[in-house]
Nucleic acid binder design. Structure first.
Length: 302
DNA sequence: CTACGAGGTGAATTTACTTCA
DNA sequence: GATGAAGTAAATTCACCTCGT
């Protein structure tokens, strides 16, 4: 499964209109760099928002300002990695004490550390064991990954957004987490990535729509102008070649007239080559200009 | 300063589906 | 082709957090 990321599809992944199982492909192929990753500040709590540059500045700012909480700070600074050898390093930050944060902060760090150590999700050795079973209560406890854990997970995710069992096992060991937790993190991470990508795609499509609407408006106006000219034959015959579109009757190729006025620079939207393109096309050589020929003919006659 | 509710975030769970042996 | 295991996306739940009042 992890080999899937070999086949990255470049460009925009339009997950909106995607049917069926294409979705799966898309998420696996979504280039990570579409959404720019951002390293958190030293004191910053590592959250999804903080790791991304969002278009929505307000939410970004909010997330940023929310910054870090004492919980993870305590975990990372005091308890988590103070022991490099990992002997007593409960890497996960579990807020296993119910109640307000201020109350918990009042307690000593040792308490937290002990709780975290004993409560790294799933008291049983089973990967899927129920929450922190020690209490006997069925309430599921909230795990908070430490800054370092999140960073490592992010780094790994940048390399491959899916893990094979070996990688999962190794990463879990490295992070002092259950493989299941790593798996869940990657699942959620992929979901968040896709969500963000969808938002980006949405923005892009919106802009495309606006561009096309504008283009349509412009072309309609041009059509109106041409119709008006056609109504007065005198003007019609003496007019310059039409501004944008010239059609060769034999090969049906549309081209931009080189003799046309300033608006001739506009793209010809009906050219087969660029019909589906939102980018203004390159002007192609004029195969035939019936308008020019016609006007010449008429002038010589009169 | 404290309490409280709203809303956001993210870990974990459930469900449904695909793929593969 | 039927079957079960494994993996994943999507939807959902729920604990916890921040912020405004």
């Amino acid at each position: 499964m992890a080999d899937k990321d070999d086949e990255f599809c470049l460009g925009l992944s339009l997950s909106l209109g995607c049917g069926d199982y294409q979705k799966k492909k898309i998420i696996n192929q979504t280039p990570i760099n579409v959404i720019q990753l951002q390293k958190p500040l030293p004191n910053q709590r590592v959250s999804f928002n903080n790791l991304f540059l969002f278009h929505d500045r307000s939410s970004e700012t909010r997330s940023f300002l929310r910054g870090f909480d004492g919980n993870s700070l305590r975990a990372s600074a005091a308890a988590v990695f103070e022991d490099e050898n990992g002997v007593s390093s409960p890497n996960s930050t579990v807020s296993s004490v119910s109640g307000k944060r201020s109350e918990r902060e009042g307690n000593g760090d040792e308490n937290d550390a002990v709780e975290r150590a004993s409560c790294s999700r799933g008291g049983s050795e089973d990967d899927d064991g129920g929450g922190c079973g020690g209490d006997g209560e069925s309430s599921r406890k909230k795990l908070r990954l430490s800054k370092e854990q999140s960073l490592l997970l992010e780094e790994t995710f940048k390399e491959h957004n899916t893990l094979n069992p070996k990688q999962k096992q190794a990463l879990a060991k490295q992070l002092n987490l259950k493989p299941r937790q790593v798996e869940v993190w990657f699942q959620n991470r992929r979901a968040r990535t896709k969500l963000k990508q969808t938002e980006v795609d949405c923005e892009y499509l919106k802009r495309c729509c606006e561009t096309l609407t504008e283009e349509n408006r412009r072309l309609q106006k041009e059509v109106q102008e041409l119709r008006a000219l056609k109504l007065s034959p005198q003007l019609y015959m003496q007019m310059n070649p039409p501004t944008t579109l010239t059609m060769c009757p034999s090969c049906e190729r549309v081209a931009v007239s080189s003799a046309s006025s300033s608006s001739a620079a506009a793209p010809s939207a009906s050219t087969p080559a660029n019909r589906n393109s939102l980018v203004p096309s390159v002007q192609r050589p004029v195969p035939v200009n019936p308008w020019a020929a016609m006007s010449l003919q008429n002038r010589s006659r009169s």
